Simulated assay, not measured.
Amino acid sequence: MALTDMASLLRDHRAVGAFNFVQLELAEAIVLGAEEAGTGAVLQLSQNAVRFHGGLAPAASAALRLAEEASVPIVVHLDHATDEALVDDAIALGVPSIMFDAAHLPESENLERTRAVAHRAHAAGVWVEAELGEIGGKGGAHTPGVRTDVADAVA
């Protein structure tokens, strides 16, 4: 079990909880809860959490260690990273999953940057999630009644 990759976790579980953490105690609680439930989980680090810790290595290294020692499959995931250097740092540290978010860029540039990130990540065996199109922040996609445009999703 222990530290796993996203493809394996999703193949083996019908639903997976993904939880952002800032402090190590919360990451420990997430792993403990997953162990008690007997299911896998995703430990997510956001760019804000990375800034809080003064860099990626402290929190990511701790999360990777927690995942390695867990009795259930745990994925460590860099969530909504807009900084490509941070993505590259995560890949170098052995973070097995990243979410690259270039939705703030024009669509063609978003696709170009996402393609480049995915190429580097995949070469290292890292799972990539990306935000193509605009999810939005407060309000936006979270406003009641807002739905994904089917034509955009197909494209």
Score class of each variant (00 low, 15 high):
1 M>V: 08
1 M>I: 06
2 A>G: 14
2 A>K: 06
3 L>Q: 05
3 L>F: 03
5 D>V: 14
5 D>A: 14
5 D>K: 12
5 D>I: 10
5 D>E: 14
7 A>V: 13
8 S>W: 03
10 L>F: 15
11 R>N: 02
13 H>W: 02
15 A>C: 11
17 G>K: 11
18 A>F: 01
19 F>Y: 12
20 N>T: 10
20 N>F: 14
22 V>I: 07
23 Q>L: 10
24 L>E: 11
27 A>C: 08
32 L>R: 14
34 A>H: 15
34 A>E: 15
35 E>Y: 01
36 E>R: 12
37 A>G: 12
37 A>I: 07
38 G>K: 05
38 G>N: 04
40 G>H: 12
41 A>E: 11
41 A>L: 11
42 V>P: 04
44 Q>V: 02
44 Q>K: 02
45 L>F: 09
46 S>N: 13
46 S>L: 12
48 N>K: 12
50 V>L: 12
51 R>Y: 03
52 F>L: 15
59 A>C: 13
60 A>P: 02
63 A>V: 10
63 A>R: 10
64 L>V: 01
65 R>C: 08
65 R>E: 06
66 L>W: 09
67 A>R: 02
67 A>F: 04
67 A>K: 04
68 E>A: 04
70 A>I: 06
70 A>E: 01
70 A>G: 03
70 A>W: 02
71 S>P: 08
71 S>F: 11
72 V>L: 04
75 V>K: 01
77 H>A: 12
81 A>V: 00
81 A>W: 06
83 D>T: 08
86 L>N: 01
86 L>P: 14
87 V>M: 15
88 D>E: 11
89 D>K: 00
90 A>Q: 08
92 A>P: 01
92 A>E: 00
93 L>N: 01
93 L>K: 00
93 L>S: 01
94 G>E: 00
95 V>D: 14
96 P>K: 15
98 I>L: 10
100 F>N: 09
101 D>E: 10
103 A>K: 02
106 P>H: 06
107 E>Q: 09
109 E>D: 14
111 L>V: 13
113 R>H: 11
115 R>I: 07
116 A>I: 02
119 H>C: 05
120 R>F: 03
123 A>T: 07
124 A>H: 05
124 A>Y: 04
126 V>N: 05
127 W>A: 14
129 E>N: 10
130 A>M: 10
132 L>K: 09
133 G>I: 09
133 G>E: 02
135 I>Q: 09
136 G>A: 06
136 G>N: 07
137 G>P: 11
137 G>S: 14
139 G>I: 15
141 A>H: 05
143 T>K: 14
143 T>L: 08
143 T>Y: 12
144 P>L: 08
146 V>H: 12
147 R>V: 03
148 T>L: 00
148 T>F: 05
151 A>W: 02
151 A>K: 00
151 A>T: 14
151 A>S: 09
152 D>E: 13
155 A>D: 01
